[in-house]
């Protein structure tokens, strides 16, 4: 991977990675730090990382760092648990996508990650498996469970409306 490839990666993937981290961390500063750390790690191995696998490497590195950080925060009690009251939906929704994003917050971290990687970044099951250190079948099941949960969430809204 050359310096040009690396700089191209910054242009191509920094935004996506930042969105992905922001969705998980719910804190822009932490999300920025994670993105910066991921790129810093990639720069250290710039000679080893293949340019074609750079995006996967970035997401994988950032994902693992994020999971570690979430665990640490959870142990410290800083983890911002999504309260049920917070997630009680209002009746004023602009569109389905907005409701889906609200429903996303109710999902466990793993399910959330695989759905985001699938929908935001368009990764295949295999690529998601490489990023999250899961088998393809596991990824598939997590996505299925997540989608069912999203569907149920929307169904419950419709019942309220």
């Amino acid at each position: 991977m050359t310096v040009d490839d690396y700089n191209h990666c910054v242009d191509a993937h920094a935004d996506g990675l930042y969105r992905f981290m922001l969705k998980h961390m719910r804190d822009s500063e932490q999300a920025r730090d994670l993105v910066q750390e991921a790129f810093a790690k990639m720069w250290l191995k710039v000679d080893e990382v293949n340019a074609e696998k750079a995006k996967s490497y970035l997401f994988s590195t950032a994902y693992n760092t994020m999971i570690d950080q979430l665990r640490r925060d959870k142990k410290k009690g800083n983890y911002n648990e999504v309260e049920a009251q917070k997630l009680s939906h209002s009746n004023q929704y602009s569109d389905l996508n907005e409701i889906l994003h609200e429903a996303l917050e109710t999902l466990p971290e793993r399910q959330k990650s695989v759905v985001l990687l699938r929908d935001y970044e368009g990764y295949s099951y295999q690529e998601i498996g490489e990023i999250t250190s899961m088998s393809e079948s596991q990824v598939k099941v997590y996505i299925f469970r997540a989608r069912k949960a999203l569907k149920q969430y929307i169904g419950s809204i419709e019942a309220v409306i």
């Binding site: 700089n7 920094a14 935004d15 930042y18 969105r19 922001l22 920025r32 993105v35 910066q36 929307i154």
Partner: peptide
């Protein structure tokens, strides 16, 4: 049922990342 990535979210310090 697919999520759409929100528009208008950009990483603000790309120039600092570049080498």
């Amino acid at each position: 049922l697919k999520l759409e990535a929100p528009k208008g979210i950009f990483y603000p310090f790309k120039d600092e990342l570049k080498k």
